[in-house]
Design a protein around this nucleic acid. Structure first.
Lengths: 230, 230, 230, 230
DNA sequence: GATGAATGAGAGTTCATTCAT
DNA sequence: CATGAATGAACTCTCATTCAT
């Protein structure tokens, strides 16, 4: 159920002996379990379709605990959304754009995005749901609006270097490039089921994903590399 | 509110032989009004978030009528989804791919897709919602799974001609091309709000759309046109 | 669907050529069809469980007709109840108690009651339902309260003759005898399903009914025939 | 209102260790109150005619609690039916058939049945309703189908002894005898209102019941006792 | 006479939230 | 900290009844 328990729960549990004090359960751990389950629930059912009671049961907690730790359904959803964003942000930081060949760096960036969106079972669905809700919750968040800052910075650096080196000849904006990458990496996940019923195959199959990833890298690269006059 | 104004509003103004009172005792009109409002409601609130009562009120009907004509909420949603698909399908048929220069035809196709997805206030949201529901309803539909047949045929014809004429040198699959086009035309609509909070501007602004459309056409074109060895 | 179409509908249809005047349907026949279907519906589903729309559909009529002919659901139920009672009353009149040996006459009466209750698919269920509704409708009826008059008269005559002839030595009241007969003839029909789940066989099977009928005749007879001092 | 006052009301008046507020925050008591009221409601109005809201109000609970404890209306009805059966079963176990004179034992059994059916305000109506619903719920029950096992065993024992002692000469089956008893004890309760409107008196009047009980005992006894050749 | 569209009240059921223990 | 009983508002759906045509 948990999308990334190791990264979130691990620090809490690290120093804890397996046997806890009987009367007092581990508060932080309970909170984290609720959050993990909530993230999965909201991703799977959307906001309206998610059930507080199901989250409580899934986290081996009870409804009261959710209200104790998170206030209400809206705020729990906000917390889940932020937690989900944090995962991708942390992932992006692992890239080292600066010291690579721009073309290789671009490839690495696209592949990371493609892999993350294709692999994380919750992120795309949460984003879709949030957009269906017209960004109501993301706007309330103190952290989400800035989430892609680092990625964009990397992209800008990368673009500038490529253009200076005449590898990328076009004056493409980082924003435009980012949106193209996102669109090409997002669609087969977001539209997995409607595409599936159109083309009659599974858009999450590993083989298909591997082939598609190469195509996406190619499409993105072709869109900015300098070409002899055409 | 009406997603199919031509079919609904037109007869009222034109010369109708039976000449009935618009909102009263008119089965077909009532059914259509319900369907139009339901389409908007489901697009705006998703399935769970949509309210039968709100649809009834919006259609100047009452709850009983909805159940009389559509059976239940699920089937009303199915009808709305099918009606929405029908609109884009009809639009696509207006394209004349066969008799144009492949490059121009591709451009026309991309622009039509871009414009439709950017303009229709309901289609993208319905598709997103349907995917969040794991395609549960699209699978039940007798018509939806075949909806992109004609479009794909057009795309295959176009690709074949372009490749024969050596304008398109790549052996790109129609499916792959379609998904790239869809991804590039879909993302700024589907992710309008989360992108908006990242980049702090409105992704539905006409100026931005016009510029972006050109970029998308460019990215798609570059992805398949023959280029001198690179 | 009709519980006794021959007795009720026959006179209406007798003189009618198969082709009716197109514009005007046969009013009396429609009314009768509704009544027949209503009787079956009320017997099958009880008052609350019966559906006006289902009755209309079953009678190949429409809801408006039911209100036109019968006023409302309550009055339709009353009409159905009275129609059902009329059937058993007519049946009882076929007995000729006066000119038979008292013991034979008693047997004939018991068998007639047993057969009617076991055979008519609706009567017992309507009576049960009416009793569950605390006789609310039977009390409103002008005809129902007198329905068993003739039967009781026959029973009184029969008892008096049997006692005068010293065949029936007991001073049993006609009412008491009637209730015993009714109880013994009613229970396997009224409690068909709960008895069925207790004894694991079908209480409407012809074989069982034939055997049981003999037992009931025997029990009733033994209850009133004169016996040497015991 | 309560069908099982011993289990419900007694603890309140007795010395209860936890001593909770009667109507508040007491799961078992709330559940029992709902069940008691539901039993009465279903007996009075039948399944379709019963109202969840009325049951909640009658039990000083709210609608949600009913769904919390019983799932849905169907299952609440099942619980009520089982509870009602349990009452008569327990009552029957109080009889000591084995050590009495067969004739006396038979009399005791008939009188117990007669009294229970005449006295319990709910049982007969629930059985009638269940049969109108074609035993749909009794069949789902794990306990009901076996409910008359013990009674039938008693009856078989009693019959065998009576026949061995030449008091009962007939080879009457226990099932046949049971059905006769049930029919004779059931009819004035099940058909209380239709009989009432026929005979113009109250079939629940104590005087009438006392007289009738003697008759029923007599009819049953005569049906199986050995008689000199007739 | 006949049709079926339309109405409105109310039924069963669900669910976020509160609160006594 | 933790539990789960209790609440009340709302939601989907049904149905007897009316009424324009």
């Amino acid at each position: 159920m948990s999308s990334a328990p190791s990264e979130n729960a691990a620090p809490e549990n690290a120093a804890l002996p397996p046997a806890r004090t009987p009367g007092k359960r581990n508060a932080a751990a309970t909170r984290q379990r609720i959050l993990d389950v909530a993230l999965a629930e909201f991703a799977e059912h959307g906001f309206s379709g998610s059930r507080i009671e199901r989250i409580a049961a899934g986290a081996s907690a009870n409804v009261g605990m959710i209200y104790h730790y998170f206030g209400n359904k809206d705020d729990l959803y906000l917390a889940a959304l932020e937690a989900s964003y944090k995962i991708i942000r942390d992932r992006e930081q692992t890239l080292d754009i600066a010291h690579a060949d721009p073309r290789q760096a671009l490839k690495a960036l696209v592949e990371l995005t493609f892999d993350f969106l294709s692999t994380d079972p919750h992120f795309v669905r949460l984003i879709m749901n949030e957009n269906l809700m017209m960004g109501r919750t993301a706007q309330r968040s103190a952290t989400i609006p800035h989430m892609t800052r680092p990625l964009l910075e990397q992209l800008r650096t990368l673009l500038a270097r490529g253009q200076k080196e005449k590898i990328f000849h076009r004056e493409m904006d980082a924003e435009d490039l980012y949106i193209s990458i996102l669109g090409l990496c997002f669609i087969h996940v977001s539209n997995r089921y409607t595409l599936g019923s159109m083309f009659q195959h599974d858009f999450a199959a590993p083989d298909w994903l591997a082939r598609r990833k190469a195509i996406v890298v190619d499409v993105v690269t072709r869109s900015i590399v300098a070409t002899p006059a055409r």
